[in-house]
């Protein structure tokens, strides 16, 4: 089955993407498809520096500023909740995990290191990790109990893909996912939105472990280039 995420019929030009950090791996072909996405991106990222930006707010939170925490919540609440909901699907579970995430954001804000990524990345990394922790805890419990506790464990790929397709909002991410090979896309979608380990992905896709490992990594590097993302 193919995931219905495809490049939109938009005119595109090749772009050059000089990497100021020099981190680009040698021999990795530049992706030529995402000029439009880059433009969209630039407008979104331009707000990453100002006083009301997530980065500035998180730095203030790290200094104990509760007002900044409230503003940060208002700025990222939809993304954080969406990240939890994507993995957990159940809105009540997602709300519980999102609350844990926000408490952790408050507590551990002093550890935020802007040289390693943006405040948004930091927060969403945390949100996804905690959502996955929850899915796995529920799954482990279910394995012990031999009964269904939560339907979010082990959804088949088709279901994960359909859900992602329904919920994906940002056209650049959607387009760039569409630019991956079938195996890359399936591996990434199943691992990330399905909350699976790569071993589970391999089992489900009937692929060898090393293949899935490298497809996930290659897929992400390709997404990085397509989205023009850098930490």
């Amino acid at each position: 089955m193919s995931l219905a995420l495809g490049p939109r019929p938009t005119s595109r030009r090749a772009r050059s993407h000089p990497d100021p950090s020099g981190r680009r791996l040698p021999g990795r072909p530049a992706d030529l498809s995402c000029t439009l996405a880059r433009v969209v991106d630039a407008s979104q990222e331009s707000s990453a520096e100002g006083p009301g930006s997530a980065d500035a707010l998180l730095r203030a939170v790290a200094a104990g500023d509760r007002d900044a925490f409230t503003h940060l919540y208002d700025l990222l609440a939809r993304s954080v909740f969406g990240a939890c909901l994507g993995v957990l699907r159940d809105p009540d579970h997602a709300a519980e995990v999102a609350q844990e995430v926000w408490v952790e954001v408050w507590r551990t804000a002093p550890r935020f290191d802007a040289t390693r990524g943006s405040a948004r990345t930091w927060s969403l990394t945390l949100a996804h990790r905690r959502a996955v922790d929850r899915v796995r805890a529920v799954q482990a419990q279910r394995d012990r109990d031999q009964k269904v506790v939560d339907a979010s464990a082990h959804r088949p790929f088709d279901e994960v893909a359909a859900e992602v397709e329904r919920r994906l909002e940002r056209t650049d991410v959607r387009d760039c996912l569409g630019s991956l090979t079938e195996t890359q896309r399936r591996s990434v979608v199943l691992a990330y939105y399905g909350g699976r380990t790569y071993r589970e992905v391999a089992e489900e896709l009937g692929a060898a472990l090393p293949t899935v490992k490298s497809r996930i990594r290659d897929g992400l590097l390709r997404l990085r280039d397509c989205l023009g993302v850098s930490a």
Binding site: S79, G82, A83, G86, G117, S118, R120, T121, L124, T125, A127, H128, R170, V173, V188, Y192, Y193, L220, L223, R224, L227, V229, S230, A231
Partner: peptide, 8 residues
């Protein structure tokens, strides 16, 4: 950062 874009 890429993963966070997927989340976001």
């Amino acid at each position: 950062a890429v993963a966070a874009r997927l989340a976001g």
